[in-house]
């Protein structure tokens, strides 16, 4: 470990934190895959429960590591510490960590015995999950490249998708179908919405000023 002092070019550890954020997003992507495999009946929920929890624990561990590293960065750099970057990372690692939690919630729906494979919304939910899964990868790429144009495009797309998820929840609230059908659909739509919203929060770091992080979905007129 002390040899770390002599190795490399001595760049800021912010580079390392960037890599860890990518690792977190990749791990969240895997957690969502495991959860939705269970939800879509591809595997038995009990079979993948431990793998899913392990993957989520890896995300949590990375979140704590990043926080510690940010404190070290501030302590070592003192007045020259990159304070805005520290605040951004503190904010977005929390958002990324929540992705894992919502993925677990999706698995919980499957583990509770819900079967959505025979429902009329199944194809649509499969498409939505594929879209959310792709959004995870897009977010990782956009954040790594600080691609503002791609971020704005993805944010607009996701913003519209949030409305669709909301509509799906409201549709279940007002329908007369049995709760064993309506509740899982509403929960899944709700969790997909939260995953999308947290990914949007991460992307706001690329296009929004620090004080407006997480506020993409409010004050639409002031957005730009």
């Amino acid at each position: 470990m002390v040899f770390d002092l002599f190795s490399g070019k001595g760049e800021s550890q912010i580079e390392r934190i960037e890599q860890q954020i990518q690792e977190m997003l990749a791990a969240c992507g895997r957690t969502i895959d495991i959860a939705t495999d269970a939800l879509f009946g591809r595997v038995a929920p009990s079979e993948v429960g431990e793998t899913l929890r392990k993957s989520d624990r890896a995300v949590n561990r990375l979140e704590r590591e990043i926080r510690r590293e940010l404190v070290v960065h501030a302590g070592v750099r003192g007045a020259s510490a990159d304070i805005p970057a520290i605040l951004v990372y503190m904010s977005i690692v929390k958002d990324i960590e929540r992705l894992g939690d919502y993925a677990k919630n999706l698995w919980d729906v499957a583990n509770a015995g819900a079967d959505i494979t025979g429902l009329s919304e199944f194809d649509r939910i499969q498409r939505d999950v594929a879209w959310v899964r792709e959004l995870v990868d897009r977010t990782a790429k956009i954040f790594a490249e600080r691609d503002a144009a791609a971020a704005q495009e993805a944010l607009n797309e996701a913003d519209a998708k949030l409305d669709e998820f909301d509509a799906m929840v409201i549709e279940q609230l007002t329908s007369d179908r049995p709760s064993r059908e309506g509740v899982p659909i509403a929960l899944v739509a709700r969790y997909l919405k939260r995953i999308s919203a947290h990914l949007m929060n991460v992307m706001t770091a690329v296009v929004m000023p620090l004080d407006r992080l997480d506020y993409w979905d409010e004050d639409k007129a002031d957005r730009w």
Binding site: M1, V2, D4, L5, G8, G10, Q13, V72, R77, S80
Partner: peptide
């Protein structure tokens, strides 16, 4: 300034691996 990156790496390693000779 010159050592900051390496110092960060060193402190992160200590935080990760605990006390001792290192």
């Amino acid at each position: 300034v010159l050592m900051a990156g390496r110092m960060e790496a060193g402190f992160n390693a200590v935080l990760g691996r605990g006390a001792g000779l290192g």
